[in-house]
């Protein structure tokens, strides 16, 4: 059977929040192990571990209106807001959809994607074909491609337009949907 337990079959997906989830998972696991360990010590020794006594003494002096209580409350609010932000923030998708005309005969549904890294490689590869380009780096977001070109040419505007046109034609041929906006910046390198 296909997995439906929170794991998506889609190739184009948003960030999976692995880092915050792993951090919270480790904290939850550590708290669980700590509680079991405390219970085992309590059963073995017949009394709660000594370090809990220090915590208990500190908590016993704590009043609701104290600065410590307020600080702990604000810390909980801050951590809660951070976790909610991690859960809510959509993030950049890992890939851009490819439009393929006449697809769908072989399968009930189809999905064609190209990873953003591959789009960057493709854009940089085609920009590198333009005469006058010494080196190029590309940054790809879901709706924007930014090309940074190094050249010895002083005709920065003309070169930028040529590179942008060349890359746009190449990517239109690939079928990116939607077609990202391409911005090229040319930096002149002096000999």
């Amino acid at each position: 059977m296909s997995r439906t337990d929170g794991r998506s079959n889609k190739l184009r997906r948003r960030p999976t929040r692995t880092t915050p989830a792993s951090i919270v998972g480790v904290v939850v696991l550590a708290v669980g192990i700590g509680l079991v360990w405390i219970m085992v010590l309590r059963l073995l020794n017949g009394r709660w571990p000594r370090f809990l006594g220090d915590v208990h003494e500190w908590l016993a002096t704590l009043t609701w209106g104290s600065t410590s209580t307020l600080a702990i409350s604000l810390a909980a609010i801050a951590v809660g807001l951070i976790l909610l932000f991690c859960a809510w923030k959509p993030g950049q998708p890992n890939a851009i959809v490819l439009r393929v005309d006449g697809s769908g005969d072989a399968a009930g549904s189809t999905e064609f994607v190209m990873t953003r890294r591959s789009v960057a490689r493709l854009a940089a590869g085609h920009a590198d074909l333009v005469d006058g380009v010494d080196s190029v780096s590309a940054t790809v977001r879901s709706r924007r491609i930014t090309l940074s070109v190094k050249s010895q040419s002083e005709q920065r505007g003309q070169l930028a337009a040529t590179v942008t046109d060349g890359v746009r034609q190449a990517l239109q041929g690939v079928g990116l949907q939607p077609m990202p906006k391409i911005t090229t910046t040319v930096h002149t390198q002096r000999l």
Binding site: A106, S109, T110, M114
Partner: peptide, 11 residues
């Protein structure tokens, strides 16, 4: 026929 076809193109 396939229920779903997903193709990822890497360059």
């Amino acid at each position: 026929p396939l229920k779903h076809l997903a193709v990822q193109v890497d360059v």
